[in-house]
């Protein structure tokens, strides 16, 4: 972003990468896949790079409003300095907080999650999903992330993208607004579980495996980690794969 600003250019959209997308090895693959799609669709985009900081979601949900306000206000200062208008995020937690909670702090942007953004690119014909791609006829199930689904009411966009991949989309018994959490939200990702009978991701993985799908599609870096852990623990990592929607598109089209 700094380079573009120096050249006096304004990108079409700012890609908010997020901590997971920047540092987590698994989520980096999603970040790269999404960039490939943006390039293929000739979207003029920028990232903040080293100027991006955590949005503060886990701190705020844990109850630490001070840490949240500090990091959020710094981010807003940077975003406003670059006069950012439109943001796309691959992490539902970043998306939710940027969209719903930054405005009250003085950060007002048009924010989209990459699921909706991808659907937009497909609808506008900027990317065309190849027919008879890698997933034709394969059984895919979709795991709704809480912060895209219930928190923001987005259930259709991810499903419509998946349907474009010519596959057999099967729903889990708990899907859509009744989808079960993966167990990572509310800063649970950063602590041990409270005592209980089983881990939440185990329960959710059971839902996914029950469908008999060979691919679990998700759109959140934390859901991907949780589902992958659950599948590995169930010793199914040979036969069942967890992918982000962006990765599925890249694999389908061979970008």
């Amino acid at each position: 972003m700094a380079d573009m600003a120096a050249e006096g250019k304004t990108p079409e959209v700012l890609f908010w990468v997020g901590c997971a997308g920047s540092f987590d090895a698994r989520a980096q693959k999603v970040t790269k896949a999404f960039c490939k799609i943006l390039n293929a669709a000739e979207v003029d985009f920028a990232i903040l790079g080293k100027e991006e900081a955590c949005t503060g979601d886990p701190a705020r949900r844990a109850g630490n409003e001070f840490i949240f306000q500090m990091t959020a206000l710094q981010n807003i200062e940077v975003l406003n300095m670059y006069n950012v208008k439109k943001i796309v995020a691959t992490c539902p937690h970043c998306f939710n907080i940027l969209k719903n909670e930054y405005p009250e702090l003085g950060g007002k942007y048009e924010v989209q999650h990459h699921t909706e953004f991808l659907q937009g690119l497909i609808n506008d014909g900027r990317i065309k999903l190849k027919e008879g791609g890698a997933f034709e006829g394969k059984k895919i199930t979709y795991h709704d992330s809480c912060y895209i689904g219930r928190a923001n009411g987005i259930y259709e966009a991810p499903r419509s993208v998946l349907q474009g991949l010519d596959n057999d989309l099967v729903e889990m018994k708990r899907a859509g607004s009744r989808g079960l959490c993966c167990g990572a939200g509310g800063a649970q990702m950063f602590k041990e579980d409270e005592p209980g009978d089983k881990r939440i991701n185990t329960a959710r993985t059971e839902d996914a495996l029950e469908t008999g799908a060979s691919i679990v599609a998700a759109n959140c870096p934390f859901c991907i980690t949780m589902m992958q852990d659950g599948i590995t623990a169930a010793e199914k990592s040979e036969s069942v794969m967890v992918y982000d929607l962006a990765e599925l598109i890249v694999n389908n089209n061979g970008f």
Binding site: V17, F23, Q28, C54, A59, A62, I67
Partner: peptide, 29 residues
């Protein structure tokens, strides 16, 4: 509150990321 959260709080405060990592934020790029 849960002690597990402290490293996350400290990391956001000091490095701007939820994990304390040596890599640059845009190394992937």
């Amino acid at each position: 509150g849960p002690g597990d959260w402290l490293p996350m709080f400290n990391s956001i405060e000091n490095t701007g990321a939820v994990w304390q990592l040596p890599d640059a934020r845009d190394k992937w790029r």
